[in-house]
Computed example of a mutant assay.
Amino acid sequence: MGQLLMGQLLAPGVSAPDFTLHVTPDQTLSLDDLRGRSIVLAFYPADWSPVCGDQMALYNQVLPEFRKYDAAVVGISVDSAWCHQAFAETRHLHFPLLADFEPKGAVASQYGAYRNGEGVCERALFVLDRDGIIFWSYRSPIAVNPGADGILDALDRLENQETSHGRT
């Protein structure tokens, strides 16, 4: 079990590493494209696993809540863009799924959210502020759907912090 030791997730206050990943086989999305709004990064192990499917479906259902905070939601796993496309269509997902596919897990590794022994992403969540600084990060046990409450709580606290600092 030695090689399964988990890395440290990037902590609040750290600037989120920029990345550009495929969102479809012929389109990419970079973190920089989303700057200026809050961003929710949801790293997850695999498209078709039951817990991941439920987790992404839940985020799809609560998209209106995320939008109240002007937050962009992005799912990231090591699946290919083709796999993501089929999964998103089947699940009717209305937010991008990014393929951390080649080199495998490179972005997840930068965030401390890659499981080397298994070759999949951790079930890890990050909320970034408008300047791309990590405000909140959380790792869930791989078999547990972390839900949306932690994200919504972090977005609420972030909005209150920005409002109290004169930013709206």
Rank of each mutant, 00 (worst) to 15 (best):
M1F: 08
L4Y: 10
L5N: 13
L9N: 14
L9Y: 14
G13P: 14
V14R: 12
S15N: 07
A16K: 09
P17H: 11
F19Y: 08
T20A: 14
L21V: 11
L21C: 08
T24P: 03
T28G: 00
S30W: 06
L31Q: 04
L34V: 08
R35D: 07
G36T: 06
V40L: 12
L41N: 01
A42H: 08
P45M: 05
A46Q: 13
A46S: 13
W48A: 11
W48H: 12
P50V: 14
C52N: 05
C52L: 06
G53Y: 09
M56E: 03
A57P: 00
A57D: 05
N60C: 07
N60T: 04
E65K: 12
R67A: 15
K68F: 06
D70K: 13
D70L: 09
G75V: 03
G75P: 00
G75F: 11
G75S: 04
S77P: 05
S77C: 06
S77D: 02
D79E: 06
C83W: 04
H84M: 13
Q85W: 03
A86I: 04
A86M: 03
F87T: 00
A88F: 01
E89G: 04
P96Q: 14
L98R: 05
L98I: 09
A99K: 10
D100F: 12
F101L: 04
P103T: 13
G105F: 11
G105I: 05
V107R: 06
A108E: 06
Y114T: 01
Y114N: 00
R115Y: 03
G119N: 03
V120I: 15
V120W: 15
V120R: 00
C121F: 08
C121W: 12
L125C: 10
V127L: 02
L128M: 02
D131S: 09
F135N: 05
S137P: 14
Y138W: 05
Y138V: 01
Y138M: 01
S140N: 07
N145Q: 06
N145L: 07
A148M: 03
D149F: 07
D149N: 11
G150V: 01
I151P: 01
L152S: 01
L152A: 04
L155D: 02
D156I: 01
L158D: 00
E159T: 14
E159Y: 09
T163S: 08
H165T: 05
R167L: 06
